[in-house]
Amino acid sequence: MSEEARATVLKTLSGEEIKLFGKWSLLDVEIRDQSLRRYISLKPVLVPHSEGRHAKKRFGKANVSIVERIANELMRPGRNAGKKILALNIVKRAFEIIELKTGKNPVQVLVWAIENASPREETTRVIYGGILYHVSVDVSPQRRVDLALRFITEGARACSFNNPKTIEECLADEIVAAAYGDSNSYALRKKEEIERIALASR
């Protein structure tokens, strides 16, 4: 980040940098994939909870903190729907585990995981002359982020089901595996499966 950008950064009333959960800086997090830069929001927030302000704005979710978006994905099944504080606590504890495992900023590790787990190509159905075809199409950047977040949380949920491992440990393991290209990652397996089907449908 440039010196000019650092000078205009949001700060607390006491003049300190705003850190996620009071622990992790978002200023030095880098997004390597240029196409995803617009859709991964790293705006400094203390608690990632926007209270649904983006809900009625088209593409408004692009301005929601990426940490809040992964917490929202954890609320998906009916059993956990609406339990935002529970979801945020899961993410916070998972980030603490990631920091212990990797020694790096967990937000940076999450961004790497999203970049690695987001499919570039998928299939859509086209009906032509009464016959249904599957045709491969490029995936838009916003959908790439959506799918990556979905795969990461699905993998964590599947790992912790009927397992003594907690959801926090499973989420941390999934994020680290996806970030470092581990073949055990559920998100990477799903991405490769989608891209393989799309390649066959070209």
Score class of each variant (00 low, 15 high):
residue 36 L to W: 07
residue 102 T to M: 14
residue 197 I to S: 13
residue 125 R to L: 14
residue 50 S to E: 05
residue 116 N to Q: 14
residue 136 S to Y: 07
residue 23 K to V: 14
residue 185 S to M: 11
residue 89 N to I: 00
residue 134 H to Q: 06
residue 51 E to T: 04
residue 45 V to D: 03
residue 132 L to Y: 08
residue 83 K to D: 08
residue 141 P to S: 01
residue 76 R to H: 10
residue 189 R to T: 03
residue 197 I to H: 15
residue 161 F to M: 14
residue 65 S to A: 01
residue 140 S to W: 13
residue 2 S to Y: 13
residue 34 Q to Y: 14
residue 181 G to V: 04
residue 129 G to R: 13
residue 167 I to C: 00
residue 34 Q to S: 14
residue 13 L to K: 15
residue 156 A to P: 01
residue 176 V to I: 11
residue 42 L to E: 01
residue 98 I to Q: 00
residue 65 S to R: 01
residue 160 S to W: 10
residue 59 F to L: 06
residue 64 V to G: 01
residue 173 D to R: 07
residue 166 T to F: 11
residue 157 R to C: 03
residue 107 V to P: 03
residue 109 V to I: 14
residue 39 Y to M: 06
residue 132 L to N: 10
residue 57 K to A: 15
residue 20 L to S: 02
residue 50 S to T: 03
residue 189 R to M: 07
residue 95 F to S: 04
residue 49 H to P: 02
residue 51 E to K: 08
residue 80 N to K: 14
residue 114 I to N: 01
residue 1 M to E: 14
residue 82 G to Y: 12
residue 195 E to K: 10
residue 33 D to N: 10
residue 49 H to E: 06
residue 109 V to H: 07
residue 34 Q to F: 14
residue 55 A to K: 15
residue 173 D to A: 11
residue 73 E to Q: 14
residue 134 H to K: 12
residue 143 R to P: 00
residue 34 Q to V: 10
residue 86 L to C: 07
residue 141 P to I: 04
residue 132 L to K: 15
residue 124 T to Q: 12
residue 151 F to M: 00
residue 11 K to A: 08
residue 180 Y to H: 09
residue 99 E to W: 11
residue 197 I to M: 15
residue 162 N to K: 08
residue 86 L to I: 04
residue 82 G to V: 05
residue 56 K to L: 10
residue 159 C to E: 06
residue 194 I to H: 07
residue 183 S to L: 12
residue 154 E to P: 15
residue 63 N to H: 08
residue 39 Y to S: 12
residue 137 V to Q: 09
residue 51 E to M: 09
residue 128 Y to Q: 08
residue 174 E to Y: 08
residue 4 E to N: 13
residue 72 N to K: 14
residue 166 T to I: 13
residue 25 S to Q: 09
residue 43 K to C: 02
residue 201 S to E: 09
residue 18 I to W: 03
residue 183 S to T: 05
residue 94 A to N: 02
residue 21 F to S: 02
residue 28 D to W: 11
residue 106 P to Q: 09
residue 131 I to D: 00
residue 37 R to I: 05
residue 77 P to H: 13
residue 82 G to L: 11
residue 62 A to C: 05
residue 58 R to Y: 13
residue 119 P to G: 00
residue 154 E to A: 05
residue 38 R to E: 11
residue 126 V to F: 09
residue 69 R to Y: 03
residue 164 P to S: 02
residue 20 L to T: 00
residue 104 K to L: 10
residue 148 A to M: 09
residue 144 R to N: 00
residue 31 I to N: 07
residue 195 E to G: 07
residue 39 Y to W: 05
residue 132 L to W: 09
residue 123 T to N: 07
residue 14 S to W: 12
residue 197 I to W: 15
residue 138 D to M: 10
residue 96 E to S: 10
residue 26 L to R: 00
residue 51 E to S: 05
residue 129 G to Y: 09
residue 79 R to A: 15
residue 46 L to R: 06
residue 31 I to L: 09
residue 83 K to T: 02
residue 123 T to I: 06
residue 71 A to G: 03
residue 158 A to H: 11
residue 67 V to P: 01
